[in-house]
Design a binder for these strands. Structure first.
Length: 430
DNA sequence: TCTGGGGTCCTAGGACCC
DNA sequence: TCTGGGGTCCTAGGACCC
């Protein structure tokens, strides 16, 4: 048996903890550069604001409807998440943190599951201030579905029986009631079924979850995929997706950003890509991995008229490494190869690929002889950035010498909080 | 004027190789 | 008329998730 604990409208709820005045207002949290809405309060949803709605399209609601739009504060959300997760863990013996606002919990050995779920929900509400929904079912997919039902029952009274609101335990429902609930639930609500497959299922006469559970497995596999077949089995109560208590190491690590303003010239592009590469390398070291390849991409806006540009390149590294200098250099080399003048680029990114486990023989693999110094330097760099904020200190790169890199401090956007003379920092041989 | 940033898995075509 | 078979790598894109 599994539970899924999920914070409601998570980013918005985090903001409301510190600004209770926002409690009954329509609120959205915006992405980087205030580009689009990535979290919405119920009131904002009721105004018809869709997930991912561009800010410029909803801005007028600030005037007409009292909408409050906030810039995202991911450090805050990460912190609130940790507190919520540690309380949620009290629900059962094992926990898988699935995303910033969701965790699966196994329930074997837990007695009086539904009551305990209410208790935990209450603890999170009082201790952290985040309202949660809790779904319970025999498989992860059913727990997810139960969670979706718990939310709908709360938000749209009448959509489901009121006793399923906030905490919904599908496992304790009488068979006929469960069937009725599943018949009321659209296939698109199921974890793993997006818009595309939902439409295809509808065309095939499978509109609700109950119908999907009755479908022939062989047909599902042939017409769609083994992935959908697994989902159907899970909906029938056959557990196919196990709890992952230790997150598997990432197979790719990306750092990508949209620019506030379009960028045309190589210089600023190199600056940006250097910083992304440096951040990606930091994430890589955090999971003690080594990358074998670096991918770089840049593209123009898919929404704006004008000449289109979208290119990417994979640069193989001589040997697997987590060395910021090598990764930055490769990324910049790749960028130079794909770059072309005359395009208004709005986004670029660096993706580390072919990631292997660096805990074995990291020292030998990592570098030549310069590397011992360098890995101490990176350790210090990562610690400083963790303590004083991401990007306090980073590896800079100039457009002047191809592939050159030097240590520098980021000055923009943030009052420097770390004030050592740069000259005192050893210069890496890059 | 203004459209996020991560991830996973799968498929397919072309280049290139033996 | 008719043009191997199998493999890898790269690039691109589609589908899903948060």
């Amino acid at each position: 048996m599994y539970a899924l604990v999920d914070g409601n409208n998570f980013y918005v709820s985090c903001e409301r903890v510190f600004r209770p005045a926002l409690n009954r207002c329509p609120v959205v949290v915006l992405s980087n550069n205030d580009g689009c809405a990535i979290a919405r309060s119920n009131e904002a949803k009721d105004l018809g604001i869709k997930m991912g709605a561009p800010y410029f399209q909803i801005k007028h609601l600030e005037v007409t409807e009292g909408l409050v739009a906030l810039s995202a504060n991911f450090a805050l959300y990460g912190d609130m998440s940790e507190r919520m997760m540690s309380l949620a863990a009290g629900l059962g013996p094992e926990q898988e943190i699935y995303s910033i606002d969701e965790s699966f919990i196994t329930l074997h050995g837990v007695r009086d599951v539904t009551r305990r779920a209410w208790t935990i929900r209450d603890r999170i509400a009082r201790g952290v201030g985040i309202p949660c929904g809790i779904g319970i079912g025999p498989t992860k997919t059913l727990a997810k579905l139960a969670n979706a039902i718990a939310k709908d029952a709360e938000r749209k009274p009448g959509s489901y029986p009121a006793h399923l609101a906030r905490v919904c335990n599908l496992a304790e429902l009488p068979r006929l009631e469960l069937q009725a609930i599943l018949e009321q639930t659209h296939v698109g609500a199921v974890w793993g079924i997006g818009n595309r497959i939902s439409n295809q299922l509808n065309e095939a006469g499978i509109a609700n979850v109950w119908q999907l559970t009755q479908a022939d497995l062989g047909t599902i596999r042939r017409r769609w995929s083994v992935v959908l077949e697994r989902t159907v089995r899970e909906l029938r109560g056959e557990s196919c997706i196990a709890l992952e208590d230790a997150p598997p190491p990432k197979k790719m690590i990306a750092c990508t950003r949209s620019f506030g303003q379009p960028v045309e010239d190589l210089g600023p592009l190199i600056e940006a890509v250097s910083e992304y590469a440096s951040r990606a390398a930091e994430k890589l070291r955090r999971q003690r991995g080594l990358a074998g390849q670096v991918q770089v991409f840049a593209h123009t806006s898919p929404f704006r008229p004008g000449p289109r540009f979208s290119r990417s390149i994979v640069v193989p590294l001589l040997r697997p490494t987590a060395d910021t200098a090598l990764i930055v250099r490769s990324a910049v080399d790749g960028l130079r190869r794909i770059y072309e003048e005359g395009y208004e680029l709005i986004k670029a990114g660096v993706i580390l690929l072919d990631i292997s486990d660096g805990t074995i023989k990291q020292n030998e693999l990592d570098l030549g002889e310069a590397s011992k110094d360098r890995s101490a330097l990176y350790g210090a760099l990562d610690k400083i950035n963790m303590r004083y904020g991401r990007g306090t200190l980073h590896l800079a790169s100039t457009g002047l010498e191809p592939g050159s890199a030097r240590w520098g401090m980021r000055q923009e956007r943030r009052t420097p909080r770390y004030t050592t003379n740069i000259e005192e920092i050893p210069v890496a041989r890059c």
